[in-house]
C-alpha cells in the first residue's frame, strides 16, 4: 500500500493544511528515523507538488461507503444489577500506569496485596 493517502489514512479532499497537521501527528508518533523520513517524503509529495497530489488522489480508492452512524450507548447498570466485585474496583493497568504506578505487581488479582488489604478492611467494616 504505497499510496500515501491510503497508507496514512488521509482524505484526498483535505487541503495541504489538514494533511500537514495529520502528517505532523504521524511524525511525532513515528518509532524510527526511517519511518519519520518516509512520512516527510510523503508529506512533500502531497503538499509541495499539487500535480503529484492530484495523481496520488486519483490513484487512491475513493471512499464510496456511507459514513458510519453512531455506536450504541453503553447500557446503564441498574440498582438491581449484580453487586460490584473486586475486579470492578481495580484500576486498569493503563490507568494505574497513568496514576504513577510504573511497576505493577506480577501476581494474580487474588494474590494482589493491595486488593487483599482492601478486602480485609471491607470484612472488618
Amino acid at each position: 500500500m504505497s499510496n500515501p493517502f491510503e497508507r496514512y489514512g488521509l482524505d484526498p479532499f483535505d487541503g495541504p493544511a489538514a494533511i500537514t497537521e495529520r502528517m505532523r501527528e504521524l511524525a511525532e508518533d513515528a518509532e524510527s528515523e526511517e519511518e519519520r523520513a518516509e512520512i516527510r517524503e510523503a508529506w512533500e509529495a502531497l503538499t509541495l507538488h499539487p500535480r503529484r497530489r492530484l495523481e496520488l488522489a486519483l490513484e487512491a480508492h475513493p471512499d464510496s461507503r456511507p459514513a458510519l452512524g453512531r455506536s450504541p450507548r453503553p447500557r446503564r447498570r441498574g440498582r438491581s444489577a449484580d453487586a460490584l466485585g473486586l475486579a470492578d474496583l481495580t484500576a486498569l493497568p493503563s490507568v494505574a500506569g497513568a496514576l504513577g504506578e510504573r511497576t505493577l505487581p506480577d501476581v494474580s488479582l487474588d494474590e494482589d496485596p493491595v486488593l487483599i488489604d482492601v478486602a480485609k478492611k471491607g470484612a472488618r467494616g
Partner: peptide
C-alpha cells in the same frame, strides 16, 4: 475530484490533463 483535491493550485488545463 480534481477541483476538490488541488483547487487553484494547478491551472485548470493541467488539472484536467492529469485527471
Amino acid at each position: 475530484l480534481a477541483e476538490a483535491v488541488v483547487a487553484d493550485a494547478l491551472p485548470a488545463a493541467e488539472r484536467d490533463a492529469v485527471a
